[in-house]
Lab assay of single mutants.
Amino acid sequence: KKVTINGVEIKFNNPEEAVKFALELAKRLNLRIEFHGDQIKIE
């Protein structure tokens, strides 16, 4: 399963991993996060 985070394609074994990764990243950098299907936007 491929997920695009800020235009960067990252391959994950499952979608939950991708979501956890994105949330952790957003929390660490104190950023806002948006989900659009397989696209995750962090700003």
Rank of each mutant, 00 (worst) to 15 (best):
K1N: 14
F21P: 00
I40T: 01
K11S: 14
K27F: 13
P15T: 13
L25Q: 04
E34P: 00
E24A: 12
I5T: 01
Q39E: 15
V8W: 10
T4F: 15
G7V: 05
K11P: 09
I33R: 00
V8T: 06
R28D: 08
I10Q: 03
V3F: 06
F12W: 04
E24P: 01
I5R: 00
N14Q: 05
H36G: 07
K11Y: 15
A18D: 01
N30V: 05
K2L: 14
R28P: 02
L23R: 06
K1C: 15
A22G: 02
G37M: 10
I40S: 01
E16H: 10
F12T: 03
A22T: 04
K20W: 15
N14G: 06
E9S: 09
I42M: 08
I10G: 00
D38M: 06
N30T: 04
N6T: 03
K2S: 14
A18L: 08
K20F: 09
E34M: 05
K41F: 15
I33N: 00
H36E: 12
L25K: 00
I5H: 04
F21N: 02
E17H: 07
L25E: 04
V19F: 12
K2A: 11
K41Y: 14
K1Y: 15
E16L: 11
G7I: 09
G37N: 09
N6M: 11
K2F: 13
R28F: 10
I40Q: 01
I40L: 04
K27I: 10
F12Y: 04
E34W: 09
I42K: 01
L31C: 05
E43H: 14
H36V: 15
I33Q: 00
L23V: 10
E34V: 09
V8E: 05
E17Q: 10
V3K: 01
Q39R: 08
A18S: 04
K1D: 07
I42R: 01
D38G: 07
K1L: 15
G37H: 09
L29E: 07
G7C: 06
P15A: 13
I33T: 01
N6Q: 05
N14E: 05
K11L: 15
V19T: 07
T4Q: 06
I10S: 02
I40C: 00
E9M: 08
V19P: 00
R32D: 05
D38S: 06
A18F: 09
V3D: 02
R28N: 07
H36C: 12
I5C: 04
E9D: 08
Q39V: 15
V8C: 13
I40H: 01
I33F: 05
H36P: 02
N13A: 14
R32F: 08
A22N: 00
K27D: 12
E34F: 10
E24K: 05
I42F: 06
V8F: 12
V8Y: 13
V3A: 01
L31F: 06
I40P: 00
K27E: 14
F35D: 02
K20R: 13
V19M: 14
I42Q: 01
E24R: 07
E24Y: 09
K1I: 15
I10Y: 14
F35L: 06
I42D: 00
L31D: 00
E16C: 08
K41T: 13
L31R: 01
I10T: 03
E34S: 10
H36W: 11
A18I: 05
K1H: 14
A18K: 01
H36R: 10
E17R: 05
F12S: 02
I40A: 00
E9K: 03
G37Q: 09
I33C: 04
V19E: 06
I10P: 00
K41L: 14
E16Y: 12
V19D: 03
F12V: 03
P15W: 15
